Every structure is written in structure tokens, then in C-alpha cells.
Computed example of a mutant assay.
Amino acid sequence: MIWKWLGALLLFPVQMVYLVVKAAVCTVLPPKLRDLSGENVLVTGGGRGIGRHLAREFAKRGAKKIILWGRTEKCLKETTEEIRMMGTECHYFICDVGNREEVYRQAKAVREKVGDITILVNNAAVVHGKSLMDSDDDALLKSQHINTLGQFWVRQALEYGHIVCLNSVLALSAIPGAIDYCTSKASSFAFMESLTLGLLDCPGVNATTVLPFHTSTEMFQGMRIRFPNLFPPLKPETVARRTVEAVRMNQAFLLLPWTMHVLVILKSILPQAALDEIYKFSGSYTCMNTFKGRT
């Protein structure tokens, strides 16, 4: 038994070096990309914003069928027609992922009409842009139901081979004025991290979590960063393109842009007082003061 533990102890650092070198090589050499031609892709919140661009990108990359879920039929219809014009089969279902019974009902309808879902993209989210004292209970519950619990319900209702979560860098670095959103996204991140680890022994079932910086959609309209030229908002089409690339490469976690890795490192090594000054200097403490986005 001692020799067995000693062997495992000696082998572990070798494995770590191998995996780090392998990851470094993969960043230089072009990876083998997954073929999407046989995939049925479901995008929640697919009628507008990043969801609409995700539907376009999956269609552009050859997905077999695109299925859209959302709460606004007008937007869903417009996106569906656009995808069909691209030559890809597309269907939409009106569904509020914050409503458990509605999720289960529409999941059954999808299976009956379209077939099994092989790629599930959890993109639907809401933000109210208020402090804790200014938030009412219904708004707080709505954020948790849609941004976090909806992922549990969609996961239990559908079978698929790859789950994708459009999260936010705010799951790792919260800001004032969006306490409902930051809390729900942190919970969502923990859900995906636990799910990713749980799938290690499940060949063919994968997970991808995308954590983008502020994206220029109507959802966060009015949000202001102190140095917009240094930290410009991401374009939704860029987030969509990089997300589909991550799925095709079977990448577990993706931070956008790459400079967000620096933020994660700083949060790990700096004292809270220093982090407070960084947030003040960058304008993170007041960025939601001018918020007037869509809730």
C-alpha cells in the first residue's frame, strides 16, 4: 500500500507538467474542431442580444437544427426567419426558463417536434441594476429563477451531449448596483464548475462556461466604465463567435477578453484594501449609476 501511494505521489507532478505542456502546445497548433453538422442546438434567450448572435453563429458553422427559447414572440419570430434564410432549420418556443412547469412542458414539446437536443446553450438572463436596499423580493427571486435555477430545470428536462453557459466575469468579480445579477451568476458558475467536474467520467458529455466582460447589448445599456478606450465593451457577435469556437474545441472555461485572467490573478494575491482601490480607480464602484438597461 505504501508503494502504491508513493508511486501515485511521484506520478502526479509528471502528469501536471504533461498537461500544462499539452495545453501550451494546443494554444499554438490549430486544434481539431468539432463538426456541428449533426447537432440540434437549443439556445435559451435566443430572440435577441447575444442569444440571437449565437443562433446565427451555430447556423453559420453548420448546425443541423436551431431551437430558440425566449419570452418575446416578436423577437423569436424575427430570429427564426433570419436563421431559416441562412438555410438552417429553425424552430422557436415561447418559454420562461424561470418557470419550472413551463420549462418541462416546452422541453417535451421540443422532443416531440424536433428530436433530442445535443447542444444546450443556457443564455437567458435578467438584471435589475439596483442595490440590495432598493430591490424588491419579486425582482430578486426573478433573477435567481432565470439566471440560476433555470439551468437546473432545463438540465433535468432535456437530454444533450454538451451544455454551454453564457455566464459573466461578474460571477468572479462583483460590482455594486447589480447584486441580484452578480449573486445569481456566481451561483451559476458554481453549478457549471461542479457539473464540469462531475462529467469527468462521462465520455461524450461535455460542458463549456463562458465568462465575458461587459458586452454592448441593450441588457446593460447605460453601464459606464471609467476608461472605455482601455476596456471597451465586447461586441455580441464576438462573444458568440468565441463561444461556438470554445464548443467546437471542447473548452471547459473561457474568459473574454484574455485580460480578465489578470483580474482573477489579482483577486487571488492582493489584499481587499488594494482591490477596493482598483475598483474605485477603474470606475467599477459607480459603473451602474447610469444603468438603464432592459430587465
Rank of each mutant, 00 (worst) to 15 (best):
L234T: 09
T148M: 07
G198Y: 11
H214S: 04
P233H: 04
N122Q: 11
K292H: 15
C202I: 07
Q106Y: 05
R242D: 03
L195S: 14
G283R: 07
A246M: 02
T209Q: 02
V126Q: 11
I50N: 05
K292P: 01
R105V: 02
Q251M: 06
Q106W: 01
V264F: 03
E193M: 01
L6Q: 07
N147P: 04
D136V: 06
F220L: 12
G98W: 04
D180F: 04
Q106A: 02
G51C: 04
A55T: 05
V103F: 02
E277W: 15
M86K: 14
L140V: 15
A274Y: 08
L9H: 03
L42C: 05
E81S: 15
E102S: 12
G222T: 07
L11R: 12
D137T: 13
M260P: 01
E112M: 01
L172V: 02
N206K: 14
G62D: 08
T286L: 00
G198M: 09
P203C: 00
G51M: 02
G62A: 09
P31L: 04
L76S: 08
R71C: 07
F281Y: 15
Y160M: 10
I94N: 00
L270Y: 14
Q221N: 15
E193R: 09
A24L: 04
N289C: 06
A124Y: 11
T118Y: 09
I94F: 00
R111Y: 05
M1A: 14
K77R: 13
R71F: 03
I146E: 08
R100K: 15
M219R: 13
